[in-house]
Design a protein around this nucleic acid. Structure first.
Length: 430
RNA sequence: GUGGCCAUAGCUCAGUUGGUUAGAGCACCUGGUUGUGAUCCAGGGGGUCGGGGGUUCGAGUCCCCUUGGCCACCCCA
């Protein structure tokens, strides 16, 4: 029996599930396109070595990989970024700049499934390449916020948490962390919430900070600074020059999304390749894992053999996003396509008209359904129409032979005798 | 990969100290009430109790293994 089950961490998408998945993909596409991104896609498997470039050999155990008949190592894509970098690197000189691409791939990772994490999932990626500076960073952040709003989320539901590699680096140096221990300090920042306070203090001391500075470090990385109020950050860190963050701050305000954003120096993103702005979207209470994450990674394309191209981008997975929408009561009941009209036979003569009419309507682009039941029980047939969420029901009795039938608006309950030939127009007008 | 909890119908569950052909509600399917999304009536499909092995005269129930789910760690591109 176990072999007949779907593999661990995968999902079977039944009609309602599939409709919901498409609803989300549609939102991702809609928002991407109106923010000026173009859709791209690549193969669902790549050479295994491609994934080692960015993440090292250790990544292999997290991949579903296999060999082809020639013994070449291949892997199902666990992320889209290497493919993107490869595609950009291959045509770097021919592509008009800036490059603004998005993709909504399904990805597979051989990890143990748990809340918010499955082995196959969909992930929205958008990247803006060939443009330096805070405008590009802010535009990516705006695109994410646009999507959140599109799905009905509000600033009270989720937080866009932003940090900056360079800024944090400056602060750490000022606190007395030597250059060679910076990576360890970033790691400590990342793990702060999982550690006991004593362990945190001890680890911080080992980084070379005086006790008084350890305390400041702790405060600094736990505190959240509202967007538009960088003075607080200046006071707390003792650093007056926050050039990078200042520009970003101004852009976020210009985009009108300051309400959604806050600076959180604890946002690290475990990646060596982020070079500037980093950000994550979290559910407001912080209960779930990140809904989205991204940042600037100016060396990425170069890493994959292309020219040096500045880049900023993000990814958002479907799993945590769905959890948050359910949690906030924003998951629509049913987003399946609705029939325009449901044909109901009230009499045998009416039944004769159903098939030809359905065929005619469908060829004209109308979503038309009818019952396969033999019953002439109008109540039951109307219930079927309602279950199918049809907008209209057309009830055909003996009058159908003279081209007339009763059209019922399923939402208002109104019904009227119409000429069947006018049906399409009446449906289109409502 | 490590550890904890869990597993009976599509869903929510019942099933006595181990004891006949494993049940209910809802959902689903068919038909009836000559009927307009309701109510009611009649009928129906569906479970090798996640899978395998063991103990026993007898296992949904006890033991072991395994698969899957949830949770925490590792990781998080």
């Amino acid at each position: 029996m176990s072999k007949l089950q779907a593999p661990r961490g995968t999902r079977d998408l039944y009609p309602k599930d599939c409709a919901w998945r498409n609803f989300m993909l549609d939102a991702w596409r809609r928002v991407s396109i109106r923010n000026g991104f173009e859709e791209v896609d690549g193969p669902i498997f790549e050479h295994l070595d491609l994934y080692k470039i960015k993440s090292g050999d250790g990544i292999v155990s997290e991949l579903f990989h296999f060999e082809d008949r020639g013994g070449r190592g291949l892997a199902i894509r666990p992320e889209f970024t290497p493919t993107l970098a490869r595609m950009v690197a291959a045509k770097a000189n021919a592509l008009p700049r800036p490059i603004k691409w998005f993709c909504v791939p399904n990805l597979c990772r051989a990890e143990r499934p748990q809340r918010g994490r499955l082995r196959e999932f969909w992930q929205w990626n958008a990247d803006l390449m060939g443009l330096e500076g805070a405008t590009a960073d802010a535009e990516c952040i705006f695109t994410v916020v646009d999507l959140l709003q599109e799905l009905g989320l509000e600033p009270s539901h989720v937080r866009m948490k932003i940090s900056h590699r360079q800024t944090v680096r400056d602060i750490l140096l000022k606190l007395g962390v030597p250059e060679e221990k910076l990576l360890g300090a970033f790691d400590l920042l990342d793990r702060r919430d999982k550690m006991e306070p004593e362990a945190f203090t001890e680890a911080a001391s080992k980084l070379g900070m005086e006790p008084e500075r350890v305390e400041r470090f702790e405060q600094m990385c736990r505190f959240k600074y509202p967007c538009g109020e960088l003075d607080q950050l200046r006071e707390q860190t003792g650093i007056s020059d926050l050039a990078d963050l200042e520009q970003l701050d101004a852009q976020l305000q210009a985009f009108g999304i300051a309400d959604w954003c806050e600076y959180d120096l604890g946002i690290v993103r475990g990646l060596a390749y982020y070079t500037g702005t980093v950000f994550e979207v979290h559910e407001a209470s912080g209960a779930l894992r990140a809904m989205a994450g991204g940042g600037r990674y100016d060396q990425l394309v170069e890493l994959f053999g292309g020219p040096s191209i500045p880049a900023v981008g993000f990814g958002m997975g479907d799993v945590v996003l769905s959890e948050v929408l359910i949690d906030k009561g924003l998951m629509p009941e049913d987003v399946s396509p609705r029939p325009d009209v449901y044909l109901i036979a009230k009499s045998d003569a009416g039944a004769q008209a159903v098939t030809p009419l359905a065929a005619k309507l469908r060829l004209a682009g109308v979503h038309a359904r009818y019952s396969y039941k033999a019953t002439r029980n109008v109540g039951k047939l109307l219930k079927d129409a309602a279950t199918a969420r049809s907008r209209f029901a057309l009830m055909l009795d003996d009058d159908a032979t003279t081209g007339k039938a009763e059209l019922k608006n399923m939402e208002t309950g109104d019904q009227q005798m119409i000429n069947i030939k006018d049906l399409q127009t009446l449906i289109a007008e409502s």
